[in-house]
Amino acid sequence: MDQEAAAPATPPGTVHEGVPYASPDRLAAELAAPLGRALEAGESVIAVLDPENRAALSAALGSAAVDVEWLDMVEVHRVPAFTVAMRWARLTRRAARPEQRTTVVAQHTELPGVDRGHWARLDAGLTVALADLPITMLCACHETGDLDLLRATHPTLRMGGSSLPAGPLRDPVELVAEFPPPPPADLGPPLAALSFTLDTLAAVRRLVAETGPRTGLDPEHTADLVLAVNEIATNSVEHGPGAGELRIWGGPSTVAEVFDVGSMDVPFPGMVPPPPSGERGRGLWLASELTDVLQVWSDETGTTVRLFVDSGE
């Protein structure tokens, strides 16, 4: 039996594996076989690599490289880590065939404006968002990078063509507590603002519907934002302090923010589907699904939820 025929079958469910490497050629040699098998099986393969690693992997794959979707690292990681994790999860959940496996090669490296905490939050978020989905996530990290973090956030490491146990895993909740998301940036004066209670939720929806077109949103994106804001504002009045503040900004993205003086202890907001029989967690989940970026911060002053919607142009 030849080496290719002896290759173990990919286990069902999620594979979240670290791939330490010494050079682009070594990384390409490590990845060529599993990616080649995935492509031969007609699976979706995506690679998020720097130019040197992309060139080496493309050469190793040969003509099959044309079937890989190559994405720009800076563009992928311009959004928060939890959003990156959710986008990989959505890509898998929305595949044309539910059983179809997706393979993603994603490089961990230094990028402008991206600190170590981004990679810690990303891998913690991937553990939560990808649970039980048919996706293979291969996270490449140069041997001069943060291999301790790689081992602590991946069940296995791919080395020498084999999957080897990585060592004790960090609990995702503890990891996010150590590397919390940065506080919200000051966006300046809002384009529109409104204090609300249960009796004025209709005014909240109306303000978003009126302001969305002014910020460049088309009717479909405006409707999505109306629904998303309504879910978050309803949470404030039904499960929170009973009142809140809505603010809206325009710009490259339309941003709607809901603030209330309550507290929220949800380490992975909007990343876990609510149970079919329950309502708790439904609002954050729907808001996340309806918008491009959802961010949540909670401190001694209260809880801030920001929703970003791109114009789609």
Rank of each mutant, 00 (worst) to 15 (best):
W297G: 12
L217E: 00
L61K: 03
R151F: 02
M264T: 15
S44R: 15
L31E: 02
G36V: 02
A120V: 13
L61S: 06
E40G: 15
L284A: 08
G240P: 00
P183H: 04
P213G: 10
A203V: 08
E289D: 13
G262R: 05
P80G: 13
L187I: 08
T153M: 07
R214F: 06
S58H: 15
E279L: 12
D146S: 01
A152N: 04
A38D: 10
E300C: 09
A32F: 07
A228K: 02
V237G: 09
L31S: 00
P181V: 10
G18N: 06
T109R: 13
G216H: 04
A233G: 04
S263A: 12
A47L: 10
A192C: 07
F179T: 13
A223Q: 13
E174P: 08
T14N: 01
V84K: 04
T14M: 05
P12W: 00
L246M: 00
T197E: 09
V309I: 03
A287Y: 00
L31V: 05
G18H: 03
T144H: 14
A56K: 07
V229E: 00
V309Q: 02
V105N: 05
Y21C: 07
E69S: 15
D292R: 01
E75Q: 14
G251R: 04
G42A: 12
P112K: 03
V255T: 07
S236I: 03
L122E: 06
A95I: 04
H239W: 11
G270K: 00
D171R: 14
N53S: 11
E238C: 08
T215V: 06
A56F: 07
H142Q: 06
V68K: 11
L227H: 11
A185H: 10
R306N: 01
S311Q: 01
F308I: 00
A203S: 14
M137T: 03
D67M: 14
T10L: 08
H16L: 14
W297D: 13
L71D: 08
P273D: 09
E30D: 12
P165S: 07
E231P: 05
A41Q: 09
P155D: 06
A185T: 12
V114C: 07
I135Y: 02
S44A: 15
R54L: 14
S236F: 01
G167D: 06
S253R: 10
E174Q: 14
L122P: 04
T83Q: 08
P275K: 13
G42Q: 11
G42N: 11
A106Q: 06
R151Q: 06
A233R: 00
F196G: 12
S44E: 15
A203M: 08
R151A: 12
H16C: 07
T254P: 08
A59N: 13
R93V: 10
G36E: 08
V261I: 15
P168L: 03
P168Y: 02
A33N: 12
N53P: 11
D146V: 03
A185K: 14
A185M: 12
P184N: 01
S236H: 09
A124Q: 01
L191N: 07
G62Q: 04
L169G: 10
D224Q: 09
D50P: 05
P155Y: 03
L35G: 05
P269L: 05
T109M: 14
L191E: 11
H239Q: 10
P11T: 01
S298G: 01
E231D: 11
L150P: 09
A177S: 03
R97F: 05
D25L: 13
W119H: 03
